[in-house]
Design a protein around this nucleic acid. Sequence first.
DNA 1: GTTGCTGCAAATCCTTTGCAAGGTT
DNA 2: AACCTTGCAAAGGATTTGCAGCAAC
Lengths: 146, 146
Amino acid sequence: MDSQNGNGRSDLLLAIEDQGHRSTHARRLVAEAIEASAESFTAEEICEQLPSVGRATVYRTLKLFLSADALCKVALPDGAPRYAVDTGGRHHHHSICTNCGAVNEFRASTVERVLRALDREVDGEITGHRMEIFVRCDKCLSGAVQ
Amino acid sequence: MDSQNGNGRSDLLLAIEDQGHRSTHARRLVAEAIEASAESFTAEEICEQLPSVGRATVYRTLKLFLSADALCKVALPDGAPRYAVDTGGRHHHHSICTNCGAVNEFRASTVERVLRALDREVDGEITGHRMEIFVRCDKCLSGAVQ
DNA sequence: GTTGCTGCAAATCCTTTGCAAGGTT
DNA sequence: AACCTTGCAAAGGATTTGCAGCAAC
């Protein structure tokens, strides 16, 4: 659950530095806000928490984190977009609690197998996919959050 | 592939009539435009084809068709929304050709089986899911469309 | 004649872009 | 110094809403 590495430097920040992007004040603030958020969050929430950072910069920074695979963007059933820290390495999918917004990753080898099987069932050649699972997480089921 | 039933009345229209909605001129026009479209389409395309129908009405009508399960709404990898006629009855998923926009349904019993299996792998209780498969369809593969 | 529907324009939500000023290496 | 980033404000795309007039039942 520790979102900082031993150096006290944000993993998110490191991820984009690795891609040649600069480590700026605004980006550091956004990274910290993200790492302080319990569950998933919206871009707007970051903007509210960081009035000193322009909305455009927040979006640009989120996009950088996304392209560095340090963040993932999911959508609730109604399409409302949410972001969450992405820790897994390889390809994986996400489950989103529709009650509290908690996002979890799961590497479903089964899912990959199915996709391969679908290749025969589907017209054409599969080039990609999107898959999200909506849940009511254990915490919410046990009443921790209404 | 016939989108009209034997009565010459639009299936889309019938679907919302069954839900107690009125059969109006604007709705008839929207239904016809949809049934005349080859592959998937955007709301904006319908608006362009029907200058006499207000944009709000187009969206309201699309929403009605959606809630009657006569239409489906999918999103391309970049998130761009598209609509397509939904003919299948039961729960199913869609494949979308990223080249021509063709949308096909497939009832992947395998997928459902996997979802059931995931119940054990995922934290909490599964309440829903979203799954889209992106393809390059046979027609596009064979060069029919660049 | 009710009640539902329509078009219009304005509003909303999420996000991007142009640009001049300022920050980072 | 050279180039990247920033904040602001405006633009954008998709969709919704308020509302007065009109249409379907």
